[in-house]
Amino acid sequence: MTKAFVKSGASLSSQYRATFQKTVLACAALLVALAIVIVVTTLVGSESLPRASSICALVSFGRTSCGLTQDQFDILFQIRLPRILLGAAVGGSLATAGASYQALLRNPLAEPYLLGISNGAAVGTMTALVFFGSNEWSRPLLAFAGALVATFAVYRLARGRTGATPERLVLAGVIVTTFLSSVIVFVTTMMDVTRIRSFTFWLLGDLSSTSETLLPIAILIAIAGAILLAANARSLNLLMLGERDAFDLGVEVGRVRIVVFLIASLLVGSSVAASGSVGYVGLVVPHLVRLSLGSDNRLTIPAAAIGGALFVIIADSVARTIIAPRELPVGAITALIGAPLFIYLLKRN
């Protein structure tokens, strides 16, 4: 890839930095991969569908049935596709939020789930369920509020006189997480017994219960959030090297911090409201992206958004097929991959 750039006349220095062309190329490649993965994973499941007709129906966006029976058509478009699209929205949201928290807090270990921000959103969602159960809109709204409160709590707790060290941030995350967990237990006791089981499943991150209202909201917020965060990426590049340095170089630190906290909380809120707390996505995906594409947030953030979608879709396909016909919550699979990576990163720090 580098060779092609040198040939096309770009200066040699372009190989040492992210450029607009590199970003477009990487995102285009990831989007192609995403399209392929979406098509392939719709074919995977406890009910096997005829391959050629399913692909034909998918490519026509459901306008023709291509010889699928009504049942098969419904499985494809009413069950699998919404679930996969929700996985994409949730993965994209969490990975983008993770990448931005990491840059803003100058900490490769920052992650919505580990910092307790997902738990904040979960408390918000549960409150909405208990008090405004019939109104689905209230869930992402209160989840956003919960995520925002948790974000500021962690930020305040982690800030020592010398700034936030990685260890201090992780500890602050543990405190906020455990505190909110007990709030969650408290709220759970206020629910009726029949709902508790589906609730524990949801808490671990579960994509099986999508609703027609929440899915478009989640997709819309994921896309808008990723674009808005990418628009602040150059400021985040400098914030990643220290708030004082960023201030000296011309970044309006306070404004960028509030904008990023708001958008990241919105992303976490909407994804938790739709699917519970899927853990470690915000850690695994940005880390892999940085490893392969470098640390420039103008490239990392959009690539993490698409990569997060890929990661959760694949993890969820594993979750719903590995012990078929029974299912695992997707959060169990992501944690299985994420926790060892977290330990590795903590040791390397």
């Binding site: 930095r17 490769p108 400021s235 090297l241 470098g294 640390s295 420039d296």
Partner: peptide, 21 residues
């Protein structure tokens, strides 16, 4: 100031380009 905080891998050129913000 004295040394920057470097927890993310970033090249010298990328670092210096930060001055153009």
């Amino acid at each position: 100031a004295q040394e920057a905080d470097l927890r993310f891998p970033i090249t010298v050129l990328e670092f210096v380009l930060g001055g153009r913000y």
